[in-house]
């Protein structure tokens, strides 16, 4: 703000930028979506580049870099424009972000295709897959609930932690429905992938998870989402296909199990 309004000449530029970003009163109604789309692309492509030159360092995962850098840029720009980050995010980023976000709908539906491609495995093991995911999720929910309580999270925080096994697009509406914060749930889903990418190999060895290839695949797909299924594929094709099946089925299982669990625990 200081730089942009230091001289009248600069103030003109500030107004022009503000109009383009939709942060001025006049521009707010226009809701220019281009900045949000542009920023999302830039931070994600930067993350991809950083991941490549960083030789796959775990904190340089493109989505994680994109999230942190994107928030940091919005924070800096909010400072420059003299508003708070949340307001600036809503007026400048959200219109474009929503357009990209909408495409998660067809992308999530598209997961039916890899599921159908492995229909032979699904048909043979459907009972084990569904039972393992339901029982495993219920046990995990209890542990997650009490861990969250132990670390002093409030009701909103706990409710945000419960749906994280589902893919982000499905976890967020469930989090909102059980009284959680969808943004925190989305961050949890992204962190799941970062953690599995960083510690997956070590965890698999330490807990001897690969003794059962089907279990290894289901576990990695549940805990690490699509990054988990990429990890599982490195262990073998059985693990890979099981993980991609788990990513899809666990989302449906979360949808069925988490809302009653939240009601049972008195979260809503």
């Amino acid at each position: 703000m200081m730089i942009l309004t230091a001289t009248p000449h600069m103030a003109v530029w500030g107004k022009w930028l503000g109009d383009a970003l939709g942060t001025n009163a006049a521009g707010a109604s226009a809701g220019n979506a281009l900045f949000g789309i542009f920023l999302s692309l830039v931070v994600y492509l930067f993350g991809q580049w950083l991941f490549k030159i960083g030789k796959g360092f775990f904190l340089f995962q493109p989505l994680f870099v994109g999230m942190v850098l994107g928030i940091f840029i919005l924070y800096l720009m909010a400072k420059v424009f003299g508003t708070d980050t949340a307001t600036f995010y809503k007026s400048a980023y959200l219109p474009g972000g929503n357009i990209i976000f909408w495409f998660l709908n067809p992308a999530t539906i598209a997961f039916a295709i890899p599921l159908y491609r492995r229909n032979d495995v699904v048909k043979r093991f459907w009972l084990e897959i569904v039972l393992a995911l339901i029982i495993g999720l219920v046990i995990s929910l209890f542990i997650i609930y009490y861990a969250a309580k132990l670390f002093g999270l409030d009701k909103v925080g706990i409710a945000s932690m419960l749906p994280q096994a589902a893919t982000t697009a499905i976890a967020m509406p469930i989090a909102t429905a059980i009284g959680g914060n969808a943004a925190v749930t989305a961050m949890a889903c992204i962190l799941n992938a970062v953690i599995i990418y960083a510690l997956g190999d070590w965890l698999v060895k330490f807990f001897r998870i690969n003794n059962d290839p089907i279990g290894a695949g289901l576990g990695l797909g549940t805990a690490g989402h699509t990054v988990g299924s990429a990890k599982a594929l490195q262990l073998g094709s059985i693990q890979g296909s099981m993980a991609s099946i788990a990513v899809v089925i666990i989302s449906i299982v979360v949808d069925i199990v988490v809302p009653p669990f939240a009601t049972m625990m008195g979260l809503r």
Partner: peptide, 16 residues
Amino acid sequence: IAFLFVPSGIQLAASL
């Protein structure tokens, strides 16, 4: 899909 999750990650800016 990874790119499509960028706005979901950035929405945390509203809940800092």
